[in-house]
C-alpha cells in the first residue's frame, strides 16, 4: 500500500514547526511504528534527518509512544496504542496526518517527541503509599475484596502515556491523575493517606498548567487502556471531601 504522510517537524521547543510530506510504501502486517521505521530508513538513506518519535516496548504497555494520528491520539483504533495499531486499518492511497501531543503541559522536544515529565512530578506530589521497605505485614493480613482489587486494577492499568491530555480540548490531565487517586484510594492500604494525596496531586496538576475537566469525555474514548471517567468522579468526590476535611 502507498501512503502519503504529513508529518510534523519541529526542531525544538522554540521552533514554530511545520508539516512535511513523505511517501511510504507499507504493507498491512506492519505496525504503525514499523511503517514509520520504513520512512526513517528511507530518510537516512537519502542522508536526511529521520523523524524523531518516542517508542519502546512496542507491546502497548510502556506508554512511550505518543503521537496523534489523523487527529486522534494513538490513531483510530479504540483501546489501542500507536505501537499496536496495524496498517491493515488503513487503505492504499490514504493520507495520514501525524502530529505530536499538543498541550502546554507537554512542550515539544523534537518532531513528535514531547516532554511528559509533568506526570512524574504529579506522582511525586503524592501518588504513592508511604511505606518503607521492610515494614509490611503479611500480604494476606490485608484482605481486599475481589471486586475492589479488580476496580483498583482497572484504574492502575493506566500506562501514563498522556493520550488523555492530548485528546482533551482543555488539555486536562484529570483522567491520569484520577486513575492514580482511584487506584490507591480504593485499596484499604491506600485509604490512610487519601486526603493528603488527592490534595497534593491536584495542586501539582494545576501548577503544571493542565486545563480543567469539563466532562467532554474524549479522554476515556481515546485512552488506550479504556480508563473510565468514573475515576474522575471518584477523584472529585475525594477532593471535595478533602476540602471539607480538617486533616492536614
Amino acid at each position: 500500500m502507498k501512503l502519503t504522510l504529513k508529518v510534523w517537524r519541529q526542531k525544538d521547543a522554540k521552533d514554530k514547526g511545520r508539516f512535511e510530506t513523505h511517501q511510504v510504501e507499507a504493507n498491512e502486517h506492519m505496525s504503525f511504528l514499523e511503517m514509520l521505521d520504513v520512512m526513517n530508513e528511507q530518510l537516512v538513506s537519502e542522508k536526511k534527518e529521520p523523524v524523531a518519535f518516542e517508542h519502546d516496548c512496542r507491546e502497548g504497555i510502556c506508554g512511550a509512544c505518543s503521537m496523534v494520528i489523523n487527529g486522534q491520539p494513538h490513531g483510530p483504533q479504540k483501546t489501542t496504542t500507536t505501537c499496536q495499531l496495524h496498517m491493515r486499518h488503513f487503505k492504499d492511497g490514504d493520507t495520514i496526518y501525524i502530529e505530536p501531543f499538543r498541550a502546554k503541559g507537554f512542550p515539544v522536544i523534537k518532531d513528535l517527541v514531547v516532554d511528559r515529565s509533568a506526570f512524574d512530578r504529579i506522582i511525586q506530589a503524592g501518588g504513592f503509599i508511604s511505606v518503607s521497605t521492610g515494614q509490611p505485614v503479611d500480604g494476606n493480613a490485608l484482605l481486599v475484596p475481589k471486586d475492589v482489587a479488580s476496580k483498583a486494577f482497572d484504574a492502575a492499568a493506566c500506562i501514563g502515556c498522556g493520550a488523555c491530555v492530548a485528546a482533551c480540548p482543555n488539555a486536562s490531565a484529570m483522567l491520569f491523575v484520577s486513575a492514580k487517586v482511584s487506584h490507591l484510594a480504593l485499596l484499604p492500604q491506600g485509604k490512610v493517606e487519601a486526603t493528603r494525596r488527592v490534595r497534593n496531586m491536584v495542586r501539582q496538576m494545576d501548577e503544571e498548567g493542565f486545563g480543567n475537566c469539563s466532562n467532554v469525555t474524549a479522554c476515556e474514548a481515546e485512552c488506550p487502556k479504556g480508563i473510565s471517567i468514573e475515576n474522575i468522579a471518584r477523584m472529585n468526590r475525594e477532593y471535595l471531601c478533602a476540602s471539607f476535611s480538617s486533616e492536614e
Binding site: 487527529g71 486522534q72 496526518y97 502530529e99 486536562s172 493542565f210 474524549a218 481515546e222
Partner: peptide
C-alpha cells in the same frame, strides 16, 4: 492549557 497550535485534523470522540 491547550496551547496555540491546533491539530490539523479535528476529531472529537466521546
Amino acid at each position: 492549557a491547550r496551547g496555540n497550535q491546533r491539530y490539523a485534523v479535528h476529531v472529537l470522540r466521546g
